[in-house]
Design a protein around this nucleic acid. Structure first.
Lengths: 217, 217
DNA sequence: CCGTAATATGAGGCTATCCTCAGGTTCGTC
DNA sequence: GACGAACCTGAGGATAGCCTCATATTACGG
């Protein structure tokens, strides 16, 4: 078990130490992005940041806290970016706009795939992800609420499915077939997925479209 | 760095040792599922399996190889299960059948979420996942090829998008909102997603539906 | 320019965990 | 029942990586 230290974290007051903290976080991000989680040890991070290991532990009680802060910032930035993209959508998004939106999302995902992956694997970042997704889905609900065709349907559930489906495609692709992340055909199909979904059963009330019984006992 | 050992792995010949190997793999799976990757150390695995640590290393050159074998079996089993489900689909799947299919998939994902997650995070299992997904997508292409409405469309791309979208929704949900994995409304929306997608632009040739330029220089 | 607080240093203590190895036990066969 | 091969044992060597702490350096107000 790694030694537990209580909140021994010193708050950076002077601009000198604030720069130090930034350098440490930046170094951690760089190492995780270019060398993967295996290489992410505190000694190396400190070295890359150009500070001593002791300095690192002045500002972060332990390695996990450092990564947690990194994850917090990353997710915050991504959420803000995505919400901004939502905000630019006009009242009735055309397929072209949806497609454009897909591209924006895909660029976000392409940004630092390996860092992203590592951060998402941290024990603590689950909670952050849930919060971020909740924010995103809430923002999407607002957009969907403008659509008269969707009246009466379960907007929360639709937002959930949409966000996760699009995210699944983009994440899988950037992580496993990064060379295809640029392929316009992928965006086109993604757009079709979204538009087709939103138009499917449009107007009809939410009365059991395709009743299913769970199979198996 | 963990000591590298070459292929020192002894092949289990007698049924006694074959049982031992099974016990080790089973123990590893149990520990990963119930206590997470942090608790997955070889000493503990051996103890749980009821064998000595030395025995474990008779059959697995190192910890990674053990996990790799676990991942291989898991992915193999899941792929086989999914392909079997595909095989049962009739020539023209109705929405009801698609929904039923979703439920099958979702049950697969619910099986051992934590083990699954851990295995997918292993450095080596990326390649396996790619292979498994390729298999799945190939199987799906065959199913899609029966659909006259999809003639002329890029079936590989459609399969890619479908598999990853559905997978994204199911994985996200089982991992982060497991209580909702049972929700029939989720299956209904998933079904709508799939059916809506397949029907969107049905019959029209693949001539740029929604032309997009990548934004940002 | 002096005192104090903030900041920085880095050798090394310490732990967790991987894996080895020298020697014991069980199995199959003649 | 004897012999070799397969199988098992577990104390501990080796190492990677977290984090401490005693000490040094820098910033800043008076």
């Amino acid at each position: 078990m790694p030694q537990k230290t209580e909140n021994r974290r010193r708050k950076p007051l002077q601009s000198r130490s604030r720069q130090t903290v930034e350098a440490i976080l930046e170094a951690a991000a760089q190492i995780l992005e270019s060398h993967g989680p295996e290489q992410g040890n505190t000694n190396r991070i400190a070295q890359r940041a150009g500070v001593s290991i002791g300095t690192l532990y002045q500002y972060f009680p332990n390695k996990e806290a450092l990564y947690a802060e990194l994850a917090r910032r990353f997710i915050d930035a991504q959420s803000a970016e995505t919400e901004r993209a939502f905000a630019t959508l006009p009242l009735r998004p055309t397929p072209e706009l949806v497609a454009h939106f897909m591209v924006t999302l895909s660029q976000l995902d392409t940004l630092s795939p390996r860092l992203q992956r590592t951060l998402f694997e941290l024990p603590g970042s689950q909670a952050l992800m849930v919060a971020a997704n909740a924010r995103l889905e809430a923002a999407l609900v607002k957009v969907l609420a403008r659509e008269p065709d969707l009246e009466g349907r379960d907007l929360e559930m639709i937002a959930r499915v949409l966000v996760r489906a699009v995210d699944g495609v983009l994440r899988d692709t950037t992580l496993r077939e990064p060379e295809r992340a640029d392929d316009p055909r992928l965006w086109q199909e993604l757009t079709r997925l979204v538009v087709g979904y939103l138009e499917a059963g449009a107007g009809q009330p939410p009365d059991e479209p395709g009743r299913v019984d769970p199979p198996g006992g």
